[in-house]
Design a protein around this nucleic acid. Structure first.
Length: 196
DNA sequence: TCGCCGATTGTCT
DNA sequence: GACAATCGGCGAA
């Protein structure tokens, strides 16, 4: 059994948290079993001043509301036919979040294979933000769930050597002006499960 | 209500 | 590389 990271873990700045989450374990329990993965790719969304963020300009709606609250909460977002998983960051009043773009399969691999019938091999189970939610069984009903308790939580994993953390522009956010170039995507170098 | 659009994925050319 | 799938959020009317 893996112990959930405490709320204090989420108090660090969003860019630091995005890097700290690399190597951690994302775990989801469902009635049919438990599946988990090691986080290997994240993207930071910096709120009011980040045109790519849903909370740009402090836009506060039913959907973005959760980001204005305390960090360490799940922010799920439906995109086309898919569900994307984010961790709320930034502290109360600072609507920032971190998108998990890819994980490396850990426990529950049989379950993931069943949930990802279109994947040709295990490298395609979780190498994308919409893919990993499907493989782990994360859905919109997890919106607002605190990440320090069942059935969805993040546990400390193997620490990633800072020298192995790469950064670069985020993906899929054309039409966001200057924000397109901000190097707020982080990943583990040479990991085979990153999205690109 | 109506219409547009997207932090994606999978398939086809 | 292009594009359809497919649906909820968001803003305008």
């Amino acid at each position: 059994m893996y112990i959930p990271l405490e709320k204090e873990f989420y108090l660090q700045s969003t860019l630091d948290l995005a890097k700290s989450l690399l190597g951690c374990l994302l775990i989801k329990e469902t009635p049919v079993g438990t599946a988990s993965g090691i986080i290997v790719e994240t993207e930071a969304y910096m709120g009011p001043n980040d045109r790519a963020a849903h909370s740009f300009g402090n836009r506060r709606t039913k959907r973005t509301e959760i980001m204005f609250g305390e960090p360490g909460i799940t922010y799920t977002y439906s995109m086309h036919t898919h569900c994307l998983f984010n961790v709320v960051s930034g502290g109360s009043g600072y609507p920032e979040a971190i998108l998990v773009r890819a994980v490396e399969p850990f426990d529950g691999q049989e379950l993931m294979a069943e949930r990802r019938p279109k994947a040709k091999n295990l490298f395609q189970w979780t190498n994308g933000p919409g893919k990993l939610t499907k493989a782990l069984g994360i859905t919109m009903s997890d919106y607002g769930h605190p990440l320090d308790q069942s059935p969805l939580w993040i546990a400390e994993g193997q620490k990633v050597d800072p020298k192995l953390i790469a950064s670069g522009p985020r993906i899929g956010i054309h039409n966001s002006g200057e924000a397109v170039h901000y190097p707020w995507r982080y990943w583990v170098k040479e990991n085979k499960f990153i999205s690109r």
